[in-house]
Simulated scan of single mutants.
Amino acid sequence: MTQTTNQSLVLRRTLNAPIRMVFNAWTDREALAQWWGPQGSTVTVKEFNLTPGGLFHYHLNSQHGEMWGLFKFSEINEPDKLVFVSSFSDEDGNLTRGPFFPNWPLEVLNVLTLEESEGKTLLTLTAAPINATDDETKVFTDLHQSMQQGYAGTFVQLENYLSKQ
């Protein structure tokens, strides 16, 4: 059974791009490799299967080191909703602990919704630990501000990617 907490991180960003372009940036293998992750990082995609139960398994190389990450898609409603569980992983796709925080939750449920208005898209990303211990939930909640800053840089990369399309 999957249990979420009430400790959700909610991020919103208005993007100067139509909804289909933003959705494609989140759901295309080559697009994700160009903008996903911290600023200055490089992403190599090992596996990408955009189906419920499918994976985005990637290697990330950044100034903070190398790591593997994983999205497991559970819901795909083009062009306005994407639901996935994100995790750190090893090269083989096995879940691992986050490299920086030993009590980071193994799984984080992400719900991405997109709303278009006058050619722009409001992106809302809601993230919450699932099947987490109290300690894991506390670490996630305590790091909301840090995650907001990290995602701000990632969203700048998304904006740059969209402006070139």
Rank of each mutant, 00 (worst) to 15 (best):
L125E: 13
L114T: 13
D135S: 13
T4G: 04
M21N: 12
N110V: 03
N24H: 15
L60D: 05
E66H: 04
V10H: 10
F140D: 09
Q145K: 11
E66T: 08
M67L: 10
L55C: 01
N94E: 14
A132R: 06
L112E: 08
N61T: 13
T42I: 08
H59V: 03
P38F: 07
K46H: 15
V156C: 02
T121N: 11
G119D: 13
N24C: 06
S87K: 13
V45M: 01
F48D: 11
F140L: 06
T14M: 08
F155R: 03
K164N: 12
Y161L: 04
D92W: 01
M147Y: 14
E30K: 12
D134C: 00
E115Y: 09
L125D: 05
K138V: 04
L109D: 12
L55A: 01
E75K: 14
A31D: 14
H57F: 01
N61R: 15
T133Q: 07
R97E: 12
T96R: 14
A132I: 04
P105N: 10
G150L: 07
P79S: 10
F88E: 05
T51H: 10
G119M: 11
G98F: 06
F155C: 02
P38H: 08
G98I: 05
G93D: 14
H64W: 09
N77S: 12
P79I: 05
L60V: 10
V45F: 06
W68R: 00
G153A: 03
V45N: 00
L106M: 09
L55T: 05
N49W: 01
V83I: 12
V108K: 08
T154F: 01
L112N: 02
L15S: 09
E118I: 00
T126G: 06
Q148I: 10
P52M: 03
T27V: 06
L15G: 07
V45S: 02
M147I: 02
A152L: 03
Q63A: 14
F84G: 03
T124G: 08
K72N: 06
L82I: 09
K164F: 00
L143Y: 11
Q149H: 07
F48H: 11
N103D: 14
Q3W: 00
Y151A: 02
V108R: 11
K72Y: 00
F155P: 05
Q145W: 05
F88V: 06
F73Q: 04
F71N: 13
H57W: 10
L112I: 14
H57E: 03
D135Y: 03
F140P: 09
V43I: 15
N103S: 14
N103M: 10
R97P: 00
S41D: 05
L32K: 14
A33L: 05
P52L: 04
T137Y: 01
A152T: 09
V22A: 07
W68Q: 07
V22R: 11
N77W: 00
L9D: 10
K120T: 15
M67I: 00
N6S: 09
L162H: 05
M21K: 15
R13Y: 12
N77V: 08
E66W: 00
E116R: 10
T121F: 07
L82W: 07
Y58S: 12
E116S: 10
P79H: 08
L122G: 01
R29I: 01
V139C: 03
P102E: 13
A127I: 03
L11R: 13
L9K: 06
S89P: 03
S62M: 08
Q148W: 05
Y58I: 03
G37W: 09
R20V: 13
D80G: 15
V111M: 02
